[in-house]
Simulated scan of single mutants.
Amino acid sequence: MSYLQPLALFVLAGLCEIGGGYLMWQWLKADRPGWTGLLGALLLVVYGWVATWQPTSFGKTYAVYGGVFVLMSVGWAWYFDGFRPDRFDVLGGAIMLLGLGVILFWPRS
């Protein structure tokens, strides 16, 4: 159960950052209304706050989150933008997932 809380926080932070960035992108690049950009900016602020809920240090949290961000970004692009990951995207994601597991969960002495 102790593994689920940090993972859930990384996913929540990812949704806030990617969702916020996506809404800002839509506002600035796809001519969406101003409230879209405002909501995106608010989500980006919430992302910064959610990231502080992790029990690990800043550096470790952001190192792991960087990998989570890449994986979630590919999934976001697939779902929302019709991007179809190829085998190299999947392989890269699997390698990143392995690395995240080592950084976050490997037993330390």
Rank of each mutant, 00 (worst) to 15 (best):
G19T: 12
W25P: 05
G92V: 10
L104V: 02
W106I: 00
A13K: 06
W25M: 11
M72L: 15
V45Q: 06
V74C: 03
G101S: 14
G20R: 06
G48W: 05
L12G: 04
L15H: 09
V11L: 15
G66L: 10
L100E: 01
G93R: 06
G37D: 09
V68H: 01
P107E: 10
L9P: 01
L100R: 01
G92L: 08
D89S: 12
Y3L: 05
D86N: 15
G20C: 05
D81S: 12
F80P: 00
F10N: 04
G59M: 13
L9C: 02
F88I: 10
G14K: 04
S109E: 11
W78D: 10
R87P: 01
L28P: 00
M24E: 03
W78M: 15
F58T: 11
F105N: 06
E17N: 11
L43R: 07
Y47I: 07
A77I: 01
V64L: 04
S2P: 02
G20D: 06
L38W: 15
G82T: 05
T61Q: 12
R84I: 13
A30M: 15
L104Q: 15
L91P: 08
G40K: 07
K60P: 00
G19A: 08
E17R: 04
G14P: 04
A63W: 06
L98F: 15
W76D: 12
V46N: 06
Q26T: 03
G14W: 02
D86F: 02
G59L: 13
W76K: 09
L28I: 14
I95H: 05
V74T: 11
L100F: 02
R87L: 09
R108I: 02
T52I: 12
L7M: 11
A51W: 04
Y62A: 09
G99C: 10
G40V: 07
I95P: 07
S109H: 11
P6Q: 01
V102M: 10
G101P: 06
L15Y: 10
V102N: 03
F105Y: 15
V11D: 02
